[in-house]
């Protein structure tokens, strides 16, 4: 089966490690991903609030560009997945909206027939189409010393989830188990990572990140697995800020689940983009690694977020 692949903007920038590792493990597993030609941004989370119809059209353009012989579109970023899925559902359920979206796309000579494509997240494809058995066959270095907090975030599992309960999804756990790691009973697995709040309202954003990291620590995690670039960014990059603010000492490597798959499959770190993370996966492998420089990133709550709102 051929899958159309939607990489999403982050794949080229902050989460290139996700992209690199995803391609590497897909190759090993014999998964054929055809990148959608001339794809564009899915609209991310903001555009929806600015102009609903325009944001649908932006997302739908990617579907319209999917080659004829592909019936499934796969996204790796949870927000991209949700946006593409949302426009497919909206166009199917509300034909009048579908017509308008197509009218907009007609300007570019494109159209999309709702119902043509299935929109899926890459984790779902690994679990259901590739299957744990086949994944397990590739494992050469089981991750038996890893106590992983599986973190799903919010967009991957809402409003409907194929990984179990939206509040307590379990799909990734089974995958991690197949890799030899120990998936932990981690309550906040389906909680929001804060999204862009660290940049907008730092207090709130860091509070959220702190809760998640705290929960992971209480459960005895030595690693956090994620399936979304924003989740990775927040949990990884802002650990230092959280530590400063809360006097904590978190040092979690926050890895994309595809990177963990790659490690278990015996791939090299550079093949998995492990050197690209803020808190690197190096510690996991028992090696001292040079810390990635994070000073260029925004992240100082005092500087950016003025509004200190208490969340209940």
């Amino acid at each position: 089966m051929k899958y159309a692949y939607y990489p999403g903007c982050s794949s080229e920038t902050l989460s290139s490690g996700y992209e690199v590792s995803l391609q590497a493990v897909s190759h090993l597993l014999g998964l054929e991903l055809v990148t959608i030609p001339d794809w564009n941004c899915c609209g991310a989370t903001e555009y929806m609030a600015v102009s609903r119809l325009a944001s649908y059209a932006v997302a739908a353009r990617n579907l319209a560009l999917v080659p004829e012989d592909c019936h499934t579109v796969v996204a790796s970023c949870s927000a991209c997945f949700l946006n593409l899925k949302r426009v497919e559902v909206v166009m199917t359920d509300y034909p009048e909206v579908g017509e308008k979206v197509n009218e907009a796309m007609a300007a570019g000579g494109l159209s999309y027939g709702p119902g043509r494509l299935q929109i899926r997240h890459i984790l779902d494809v690994f679990l259901r189409d590739i299957g744990l058995e086949h994944i397990q066959e590739q494992v050469t270095k089981p991750l038996s010393d890893l106590q992983v907090a599986p973190y799903y975030g919010c967009m991957l599992v809402r409003p409907t989830s194929c990984f179990g309960q939206p509040e307590y999804p379990v799909g990734m756990d089974t995958l991690l188990g197949a890799l030899g790691a120990v998936p932990l009973d981690f309550s906040l697995r389906g909680y929001c990572c804060g999204g862009h709040l660290p940049q907008i309202k730092a207090d709130t954003g860091f509070e959220i990140i702190h809760r998640i990291l705290n929960n992971a620590e209480k459960e005895g995690a030595n690693c956090i697995a994620v399936a979304c670039p924003v989740c990775q960014l927040n949990l990884d990059l802002y650990q230092r800020d959280v530590n400063l603010r809360y006097g904590t000492n978190f040092e979690f490597p926050v890895l994309f689940f595809t990177q963990l798959m790659g490690l278990a499959f015996g791939l090299k770190e550079e093949e998995l983009g492990l050197d690209l993370e803020a808190m690197t996966g190096g510690r996991l492998l028992g090696e001292a690694r040079s810390q990635h420089d994070t000073s260029g990133y925004p992240g100082d709550g005092e500087a950016l977020g003025g509004n200190r709102e208490e969340i209940s």
Partner: peptide, 8 residues
């Protein structure tokens, strides 16, 4: 919504 051990 859920029952959890994670204290805030």
């Amino acid at each position: 919504a859920m029952v959890m051990e994670a204290a805030f």
